[in-house]
Amino acid sequence: MTTRLLVTSDTHLETADLPDALVTAVDESDAVVHAGDFETREVLNRFDEGAPLHAVHGNADTPAVRDALPRRKKFEYDGVRVCTVHGHRTPDVAYEAAEMGAHLVVRGHSHTPSYNETGVPTLNPGSPTRPRDAPPSYGWLVCDDGDFGGRVVSLDDETLIEFGDVG
């Protein structure tokens, strides 16, 4: 079975007025991964309305969001173990993911999309609302029978990064 996960981070919104492309992505995903910095409980609730949400809090989240979410989280789809952490207090997220037995770590904080295969592969989807040095972006992670792949896309669906064997 193949699972398609929306991966996002650093939405930094006070209201749940998400960009249209992100709303569509949330609605089309099998699950949502958010690596923190929702900012408010209203935004967290919007992501938690549909598909299963796997999320952590970030450094800019309100106390209500921090109280509702862990600092790091591990979950699994189709044989792929994923560790999610915001990254602001984690000098080596790949080490932390390896410690948790993860195949992939999803992180945020920098607002810049990236994919790094050193150690445990690390995916940062960038930010759909406050990007740095890149267009507003989010990612797709496809998990299938222990393999994964995907891409980071702009809000205009331009591929910025491709990774992995599945996708």
Rank of each mutant, 00 (worst) to 15 (best):
G58T: 09
D61G: 14
D61R: 05
R107Q: 07
S114Q: 06
A25R: 15
N45D: 10
K73M: 00
H103I: 00
A64L: 11
V120T: 12
M100K: 04
Y115L: 01
P121E: 06
P19R: 08
D48S: 13
E117H: 04
P19D: 12
E42D: 07
A94K: 02
G119W: 09
D78M: 02
Y95G: 07
T84N: 10
R46F: 04
P19A: 08
C83L: 13
F38P: 05
F38L: 13
E39N: 15
L44K: 13
H86C: 10
K74I: 07
E42G: 06
K74P: 01
T112I: 06
D78G: 03
R89V: 07
A25H: 03
G101D: 07
P19K: 09
D67Q: 12
N59W: 05
V32C: 01
T84L: 11
T24Q: 10
A98H: 01
V26C: 15
E117K: 08
T40F: 03
D48L: 11
L18T: 11
K74M: 05
V85W: 12
R46A: 09
E99F: 02
D61E: 14
R107V: 11
A35V: 10
V105N: 06
D78H: 04
D17V: 05
H88W: 14
A60F: 10
L69Q: 10
A35F: 14
S114N: 02
C83W: 07
H54I: 03
A35M: 09
G50A: 13
T90Y: 09
T62F: 15
